[in-house]
Structures are given as C-alpha cells and as structure tokens.
Amino acid sequence: MRFVLRRLGFYLVAAWAALTLNFFLPRLMPGDPASALFARFAGRVSPEALQALRETFGLTDASIFSQYVTYLRHVLTGEFGISVAYFPTPVSTVIGTGLFWTIFLAGSAVLVSFTLGTLLGILAAWRRRGWVDTWLPSTFVFLGAFPYFWLAMVALYVFGFLLGWFPLGHAYGDDLAPGFNLTFLTDVARHAALPIATVVIATLGGWLLTMRNTMIGVLGSDYVNLARAKGLTPSRVVLRYAARNALLPSVTGFGMALGYVLGGSLLTEIVFSYPGQGYLLVQAVRNQDYPLMQGIFLVITLAVLGANWLVDLVYVWLDPRTREAS
C-alpha cells in the first residue's frame, strides 16, 4: 500500500511538471506569442474568444507568479477557456466528447489487440512449430509493416466503399440520436468495427511476437521444468507457471501502448473521420484553436500519466519482486 501511494506521489509530481512546462513553453517562445495571435485573429474572432485565449495563456498584466496560480486554478477546475473552432462551446466540453470516443475506440482496439496477440503468443510458444507458430507471426508482422494509414484506407475502400459492409465514417449514423438503446449501440459498434479491426491487424504482430519469444525463454526455465516434474497438468504449467511470468514484459508494453491510445490514434480518426481526440487536434490546428490545442495536450499528458500509474499498480500486483524494489 505504501508503494502504491509513493507511486501516486511520483506521478503527481510528474503531472505538476508537465503542467508547469505547458504554462512556460508559450512564454519561452521567441517574440510575443500573444501579439502574434491577436494580430492574426483580429477582426475574425469575437472579443469573447480573444478574452478566452488570453485567459488560457494567462496573458494578463498580472505578475508571472499570479498568472501561474490563475493558470493552475483553471486547469484544476477544468477551465480551459472557449474553443475557437467550435465557438462558443467551452474547451472542456469539446474535449469531453472527443475523449470519450477516443477512449472507446483506441482503448478497445489496444485491449483487443493485446489480449488476442498475447493469447496467440502463448499458443504459438506452447505448440511450437505448430500451425499457429508457423503462420501467424509472419503474417501479422507482414501486415504490420504496411504504413498504418494505407492499411486503413484500403480497408475503408474495400469494406466500406466497394462492399458497403461498414459505414464510411463518424462514430454513429447522422440520423440517430445518441441514447442508451440497442439501435444506437449496434450502430456505434458498426462504425467502430473497421477502425478497431485495422488497428488490431496492424499491432497484433508485436504483441504476438513479444509474448511468444518471452514464453519460449520461460518455458525452458528451471521452475517451469519443475512444475512439469511436479505432475501438474500441461495447461496449468503453461498458464500459471509460464504465461504468468512471460506476461510481465508485455504489461510494460501495454502501459506504453496506452499512450498511443490517447495521443497517437490520430491517423485512425482522420482516415475514418472519427470524432475523437486526434480528429479534434487536427481541427484545432487547422483553425488555430490554441485553447483547444493546449487543453488536448494537457489531457493527453494527464491521461498517459494516469494510464501508466494504473499499469504500475497492475505490475506490482503481478510481480512481487517489484514490491520491495524501490
């Protein structure tokens, strides 16, 4: 328990450092970002939006310290100002919907890919030189070697456009009102199927190979041999003694992949016009929506830190050796 709290403390410090950096970076840029921005937006954006922009950056006449305090208070209360691109929606609301779709889409893609890849990796190592071991790793590494956006576009073209099995974009049909009912949920699933499938195909090979290779090493270890000698059933030897240990490096990889979930699902969302975080970021850049960008960066940073903290906890639960280590 003390370990868990100490890790939490570490992540809080990291989060604070990220927030501070986010505050100081615009001020470290050569020239005055505010004047440049104001000049660019003058006449095109309402005074409220300009004011929002000012406040987000804390570019008031107050001292730098009080600006910093204001900025921190805004961040803690989720006050990122008003979005320029989606004027006059507050940035926090815009990010809120985007975040939901991203977590749903990329989260389930990474989860499916990790689970499936790891299970297949276990199977490949268990039945070495068997059917799974011979064909799947090379096939998926081959598929994973294509640039992701190309793979996604081919899939969209073939299954979405030519065959018409899946919709071409968005998170749900325009004719549906969001609600917790079967029609809506099936529609969401239909829209998510293709993006999730392409991410899974592109990343499965990595999980499979990592797990297979670690498993092969662990299967040759003394404690697995002892487990076999103890007269345990093969499935118990493979799952409880070998896979349980071989999983550890993959869990670390999973933690890093979660970063991809929130930051790197950009291409998926662009190709499939999916209204997630990455899509919003592109919109923000296109419209020079600085409040939105800053908000998205912050959310990504915090979410990655949070995800890593969770993975840390899982790791501690899985590997007793890390409990006393630090």
């Binding site: 270890s221 404690y223 002892l226």
Partner: peptide, 15 residues
Amino acid sequence: SMVFQSAMDSLNPVI
C-alpha cells in the same frame, strides 16, 4: 520427486 540443481531458478519468482 526431484530437488533441482539450482535453488535460485527452480522456484517460480511470482508465486
């Protein structure tokens, strides 16, 4: 039954 050569490696580290 058998006692293995290396006491270090014959016990599962995570159980």
